[in-house]
Design a protein around this nucleic acid. Structure first.
Lengths: 333, 333
DNA sequence: GTGAAAGCGCTAACAT
DNA sequence: ATGTTAGCGCTTTCAC
C-alpha cells in the first residue's frame, strides 16, 4: 500500500528492519557504519515513516490530543501554538478539537482522543463530566489540564488561579482611589474561568469595603458587548468609577463607548481588562490589563508531556504548575 | 495492550469481529438484531475503537493534516474552527501545525503529515517549496490549498483572489473621492497574500489615475505597527487622503494614531481595513473593511474532503472554489 | 550491535 | 447479512 517501507530501506542498507527501526528511534544505539548506510538508503528512497503503524506497534502514537473550548479564542490559540512548537521538536503532533464550552461535547471528544492512543491528552479547565473523568481514570494516557488551578485535578495541571486575577484587579482599582467598582462579564454562564475572575473581584472589593456591581451578557466577549454592558452599568449605578472586564475585547468596547459618551478615562472612570491582547498598548489611552501566561502554559504542558515520554513520572502521581499572571499598569487606570 | 478490543465486543455480542467492524463503519449494512447486540456490547464493555489500528489496516487514517502559517492568526483560526466542526461529524480529526511563514518548515511538516496517512492534507496558499510539491505529487493523499487563488495549484484550492481585494479597496476609496492613496502593509516580505492585496491596490489606483504610496513594516500586523506606519506615510506624503491597510489590526492602529493627532476620520482621511475582525464595528468611527470568507473556506474544504472520502473524485482532477469577499462600508470611509 | 519472530487491533476482500 | 482470512508497517522482546 505504502510505496516505500522500512523493509525497503533495510534491504537497500543491507541491514534488518529492526535495525532501521532502532536507528530511527535511537540513532546512537546503532553502529556508525550501519547508521550511515541507513541514512543513505532513507535519502535515496525518499522514505517517509508510517506513524500509524508505529503507533499501533508501540501502543502509543506520536499524537497529543488537545481539547480547548474554542480555537478562535486568542488565549487558547497562544497556548496551542506554544505547545505545538515545543512538541514538534520531538516529532509529536497536536490533534486539536474544540468543545464550544459544552461538557457533553468534551466527553465525546475525549473518547475520540483515546481512540488515537495519544502520548497525552490536554484538556482545558478542571471541570469535566463524570463520564469524561471515568474514561480518563481507566486509561493509561497522561492527562494535563490547562488554564485553571484551584479545584480537583485528574492528573497534572498547568495554569493559574482566576480568582486571584479578579482579586488583583479589584486591589489595583482600590489602590487607585476608586470606591465604586463594577465587573463586566461576557458569557460567564459558560466560561467558568471568567466567572471565577468575577467572583474573585467581587470578594476582594467587598473585603476592601467598596461597592461593587456585576453586569453580565450571555454573548461571547466582544467590543460591542462591552459597549452595551457599560451603558447598562452606568444606568444602574451612575457613580461607578472603576471597571474591570472579563477580557480585553470587552474593555475595548468600554473604551470606545466612553469616548462616544465623553467619559474621560481614567479621570472619570478607571478601566482594567484581562488578556493583554495585541491592541491594548496602542489604545487611547493604553489599556491597563492582566496578562495571563498563555504561552508559558503551553510550554510547561509540553515539558510535562516530554518528561513523561522519557519515563520521568510526575512526583506523587499529581503535579500542578502555577504559571501566574502579570498586571500591566498603563494609562486607563 | 488495549483493555477491550473489537474481538471482545464481538464475543460478547455473539458475532464475528468483522461484523462489528462493519457495524461501526456502516451500521445500515448490519441486521437490526445484530446491531442491537453489538451496540449493547459496546456500551457494556465501554469499548473505545482504536483509530490507529483502523488507519493502518485501511491505509488511510481518520486524520486530516492542516498546515497554516500561524494558529494565532484570527483568519486561520476561523478556518480551522469551521473545518474542524464540519469534519467532526464524520469523525475525522484535525492534526494542526504551523509554519510561521517558513517554506522549509512547511516541507518538513508535510513530510510528517504524510506519516499519518491522512485522509487529506490542507495547506495554506499556493506557494510551496519544490520538495513539498514533489512529495505531494508522488502521494495518493488529496491536497487542498486554502486562502489563495490565482496561481498554479497542486490539487484542489479553496479561497479567493487577494489582488481583487486590493482592487476593491482602491476602487472604493476612489469612489469616495480620494485622490492620494496609500497602502500600509505589515510583514509583506513573508505574508504573500498581504503582498498580493497591496499589488492589487497599487495597480487599481494607477489605473484610476490617482497617486499611490506604499509603506511597509517587517513586523507582524499590530495596532502599534499601524500607528507607526501612519506617521511614516504622512511624513513622506502629507497630502494622503485615503488609506488601505493590510489588515484590521493595522487599521485600528491608524485609527488610534489619527485620534491622537486630531486627524478626523473619514473627513480628512478615509480608512479601509481587511479582515472584519471583532472590533471593527465597535470602533470610533466604525471601520470600513473587507470580510474574507474564512469560515466558508473551512466549510468548503471540509466538503471536498468528505466528498473525496465517499469516492466522489474531483472533476478533471483539479478543482478551485472561489469563496469571494465582501466590502463592508462603515463610517471610516 | 544486530536479526528473527511475534504480534499491535483493525479492515477489506472474498466466500458463504 | 455474516464469517474467514490475510495482511497493513511497524516495535519489541529475545537470542546471538
Amino acid at each position: 500500500m505504502q510505496s516505500v517501507t522500512m523493509s525497503d530501506v533495510a534491504a537497500k542498507a543491507g541491514v534488518s528492519p529492526s535495525t532501521v527501526s532502532l536507528y530511527l528511534r535511537r540513532p546512537q544505539s546503532v553502529s556508525v557504519a550501519a547508521g550511515r548506510m541507513i541514512a543513505a538508503a532513507i535519502e535515496a528512497l525518499n522514505y517517509v515513516p508510517n506513524f500509524v503503524a508505529g503507533g499501533l506497534a508501540a501502543a502509543s502514537s506520536r499524537a497529543v490530543s488537545v481539547i480547548v473550548p474554542s480555537v478562535r479564542n486568542a488565549f487558547f490559540a497562544e497556548t496551542v501554538s506554544a505547545l505545538q512548537s515545543a512538541l514538534r521538536r520531538e516529532r509529536l503532533q497536536v490533534i486539536l478539537s474544540h468543545t464550544e464550552y459544552d461538557e457533553r461535547e468534551e466527553e465525546d471528544l475525549v473518547r475520540m482522543a483515546l481512540s488515537w492512543a495519544p502520548a497525552a491528552i490536554v484538556l482545558t479547565g478542571l471541570s469535566h463530566s463524570v463520564g469524561t473523568r471515568r474514561m480518563l481514570a481507566s486509561s493509561p494516557v497522561p492527562v494535563i489540564e490547562i488554564w485553571e488551578l484551584g479545584a480537583e485535578q485528574i492528573d497534572a495541571a498547568v495554569g493559574f488561579h482566576h480568582d486571584q486575577v479578579g482579586e488583583a484587579a479589584a486591589d489595583h482599582l482600590v489602590a487607585q482611589g476608586r470606591r465604586h467598582l463594577a465587573f463586566l462579564g461576557a458569557r460567564m454562564h459558560e466560561d467558568r474561568r471568567a466567572r471565577l475572575r468575577c467572583d474573585g473581584f467581587v470578594a476582594a472589593a467587598q473585603r476592601k469595603g467598596v461597592t461593587v456591581a456585576v453586569v453580565e451578557h450571555a454573548a461571547p466577549a466582544s467590543a460591542e458587548v462591552g459597549s452595551m454592558m457599560l451603558a447598562q452599568a452606568l444606568q444602574q449605578h451612575p457613580d461607578i468609577d472603576g471597571i474591570a472586564c472579563s477580557n480585553d475585547h470587552v474593555a475595548l468596547g468600554v473604551l470606545f463607548a466612553c469616548e462616544r459618551a465623553r467619559i474621560v478615562v481614567p479621570e472619570k472612570l478607571a478601566l482594567i481588562g484581562f488578556g493583554d491582547l495585541g491592541f491594548t498598548a496602542a489604545c487611547n489611552p493604553p489599556l491597563t490589563t492582566i496578562r495571563p501566561s498563555g504561552d508559558l502554559i503551553g510550554r510547561e504542558a509540553a515539558r510535562l508531556i516530554l518528561d513523561r515520554r522519557l519515563g520521568k513520572p510526575w512526583e506523587g502521581g499529581r503535579i500542578s504548575i502555577d504559571t501566574r499572571f502579570t498586571l500591566l499598569h498603563r494609562h486607563s487606570s
